[in-house]
Design a protein around this nucleic acid. Structure first.
Lengths: 210, 210
DNA sequence: GCAATATCGCTACCTGGGTTGCGCAATTGA
DNA sequence: TCAATTGCGCAACCCAGGTAGCGATATTGC
């Protein structure tokens, strides 16, 4: 895949990409997905609508690009303390979700809206390429988390007869479930409960062999 | 809340509601959410567009109504065998999700689309009333499942020191996570793994399940 | 300098969700 | 029978996502 095509013809205005993404991010965080209009983004970026569409073929693509850019790739550590490391990881996930959840919403205290998170999920459902894209964005971090579990199992901190991928799902799944379905809060106490529940059965049992 | 207002004026055509919902359901299952147009639903139902909007103020409301109608309220049993009862419950949930997931998609074998499920989640995020509505649709069934866990705890089949609501999240959350985020399949083997993982740490430490 | 190429901005347009206004139809109450 | 009320179908309209065509502009290669 040649990243650079033959540089014939008028080159793209690289700065336009930046201005568009910045305008889109600002409008997204302030107004939310629905109220963000392409015309407004283009206008605020000082760019024609067609220029924008030459880069991102749909509004969904633009928003996913914005969200992807907002994900800073903080590495998760393997300190040897699984509970602490998992806590660190889940807090990163929860922070990202909670930020997106509130985007564009008024400060109504007990909103149950999934906000932008649900729109991203819907965008991924509408366009297969966006699904693979956002999955790729989180792939590294998720792989690190699963590696965390695997390494814990290797050193005897977790049972060796369990599927770490499934264990991972039981750690992360509830967060998305709360954000996208029930609307309940995803705070630190909840994360602790989730980790407790997942690790409770994952510890090697010396009392009775499995 | 008077369900019946004063029946003054021309009464609503009850059959129109039925025809609209049927047309919407058919078009939704065949074409999916995006390709379903309100004009087409109205046309196929033999109804003016305004008549449709008098009943459901947005496309989201209509689709949620359709999906709510498709949820038949199958009671879940408490036979005393938690694993069997949970399997029964999770299969109901998975069946519903998988049906919605495939709605309107061509028969491409390995699609990862969340399909209608993601659109429902997004609709709930856009309109607060729809969020409470769909939650109400599943409230009974979910309450039964949680009651299942509570009753198992009471009779000593589960530990008594755990939060059954959290345990419930760890059972159901992974299914939604796979459907809405990863796109991985949610089949019976996966359900077994999830139940295994959740129950492994939930058994009382002195008990041995058969 | 000049052809070829590709972007840019602009305008006009199509589509589908959603609204408005109006004349007509169906019901209730007097 | 007649007024009040409410639903219905129709047509026109607004708005935002997305597309198409075009002249102008900026680059590469000769």
């Amino acid at each position: 895949m040649p990243e650079r095509g033959p540089s014939r013809g008028r080159p793209r205005d690289i700065d336009a990409d930046r201005r568009i993404l910045i305008a889109a991010r600002d409008l997204l965080l302030v107004n939310g997905y629905a109220a963000l209009s392409i015309d407004e983004v283009a206008g605020q970026a000082g760019v024609a609508k067609t220029t924008l569409y030459r880069r991102w073929p749909t509004k969904d693509h633009l928003i996913v690009a914005v969200v992807a850019l907002m994900q800073d790739d903080v590495p998760i550590l393997d300190t040897g303390d699984i509970r602490a490391d998992l806590t660190d990881y889940l807090r990163q996930v929860a922070d990202g979700l909670n930020t997106m959840r509130r985007a564009g919403l008024p400060e109504s205290a007990d909103d149950r809206s999934a906000g932008v998170v649900a729109e991203i999920a819907a965008a991924a459902a509408r366009h297969a390429d966006l699904g693979t894209l956002i999955r790729a964005v989180f792939a590294r971090r998720n792989a690190m988390a699963i590696g965390l579990l695997a390494s814990a199992a290797r050193r005897g901190a977790l049972r060796t007869d369990l599927d770490v991928a499934v264990l991972f799902d039981q750690l992360v799944g509830p967060l998305y479930y709360r954000i996208l379905v029930t609307g309940e809060p995803v705070d630190h106490p909840y994360l602790d409960l989730i980790i407790d529940g997942a690790l409770r059965g994952a510890r090697p049992s010396h009392a009775h062999p499995a």
